[in-house]
Nucleic acid binder design. Structure first.
Lengths: 218, 218
DNA sequence: GCCACGGCTGAACACACGTTTAGCGTAGTG
DNA sequence: CACTACGCTAAACGTGTGTTCAGCCGTGGC
């Protein structure tokens, strides 16, 4: 996404246009629109990729590749402050993110892999945090990783539909902008939650443990 | 949804069929399929509602009404144990829930209202919890409410795409079942998070507060 | 008994979209 | 220069879908 369009082969140009279009308009976006964005005819899109579905598969693959690259690069940032700082780079990969969000909402195959990856990553980070003493140990590490990712996913979805940030969010702003805004507006509360929890005592947790003991799942 | 189909007028039957279909197959479901489910012709659907979009609007309205009814009834349950118990009733309203999830993923108008409602409710509950002494006070109550709802929404979306529960979830099961399963598998970790938090100290929170003070938002 | 009327149907229409196909232009090759 | 191969286009085709339309059928009123 950081290469000028003129430098790319038609095939790559179509792929990038498709990622952008799909991210912005969803997967119902017509092939003709993608073709126009890439400056080619609709027939050529099919000629190169065989079908729209195959084009999408290629987009999935490409996005996943880029994400993996960026992820391995992001491992470097580890300290709290730098982790926070990464937030500002979100905007740079807005098209990629938009595509992933669409895939998430569409329930596509990419979404599964992506979320699975997030869960695995979260589990690793939390494990590392535990060993470093910054993260509390958990009775259910996998479940906790899912919780953390779910919070992330939920924020993304809520940002996507714009209205979720509560009241007074302009509906005209871009999805990427909405996400950053929601992140900012929720960051404090999120860290608060992660730092102190929500409840003052253990009665809810105890109640659940007791309920679970009574009948081993329903 | 708890009235036998034969007792309803064709209009109501179409509406219910539409809610179920939309919930199961998404809003791309053909009018003809809905008509068949309701045992009527496609033309009649249009005859009654004017257009597919209008039908969807009617579904939105209907679902929102039912949700509001159930919500006001649910207010009665307040204690931790009973709150837990409510989980088992989720399956009963699976079609409604499926519809809401679709609306959520589609970014429809209903989703906004629904999530806004959830956020408002969460804020109220948390406020009440604070006053009752069971919930910690927060520096950003509205943000915290969003966090709680985001977690909820994220779990729903992850359940929707099935794969998100990590590995080893059969992809053939129904969405409603997947949701219940994911809920069960994440409940312990969720309560743990809400009870004890995630971090052992306040360094992350402190880092953010410091970052925020340096430049008043970007 | 008859008529009008509203719910209802099946066929037809209009349109958007993915895909196919015939052919054009140009670069590389002998 | 002739020829082939390939990237590419424009128009056409088939299909799925929302919507319209002409008419049927049972019911209630006169």
């Amino acid at each position: 996404m950081n290469v000028r369009s003129e430098d790319l082969t038609a095939r790559a140009r179509i792929r990038d246009a498709a990622v952008a279009r799909f991210g912005r308009d969803g997967f119902r976006a017509p092939v003709r629109a993608i073709a126009e964005d890439a400056g080619v005819s609709a027939g050529l899109v099919i000629h190169h990729f065989g079908s729209k579905d195959a084009l999408r598969a290629e987009c999935d693959h490409h996005v996943l590749t880029v994400v993996r690259e960026q992820k391995s690069r992001a491992i470097a940032y580890a300290s709290p402050a730098e982790t926070i700082g990464m937030l500002s780079t979100v905007q740079e990969y807005a098209p990629l993110f938009a595509y992933i969000v669409r895939s998430l909402l569409d329930g596509g195959a990419l979404a599964g892999h992506f979320v699975d990856g997030l869960v695995d990553d979260a589990a690793d980070y939390l494990q590392a945090g535990e060993e470093a003493g910054t993260v509390r140990p958990s009775a259910d590490p996998a479940g906790r990783a899912r919780q953390v990712v779910a919070l992330q996913v939920g924020l993304i979805v809520m940002a996507q539909l714009g209205a979720a940030a509560g009241h007074g969010v302009a509906p005209t702003e871009s999805p990427a902008e909405a996400m950053v805004q929601l992140y900012e507006r929720s960051m404090l509360a999120g860290l608060e939650l992660y730092t102190h929890g929500l409840f003052t005592d253990t009665s809810y947790l105890d109640a659940y443990l007791e309920y679970r003991q009574k009948d081993g799942k329903s």
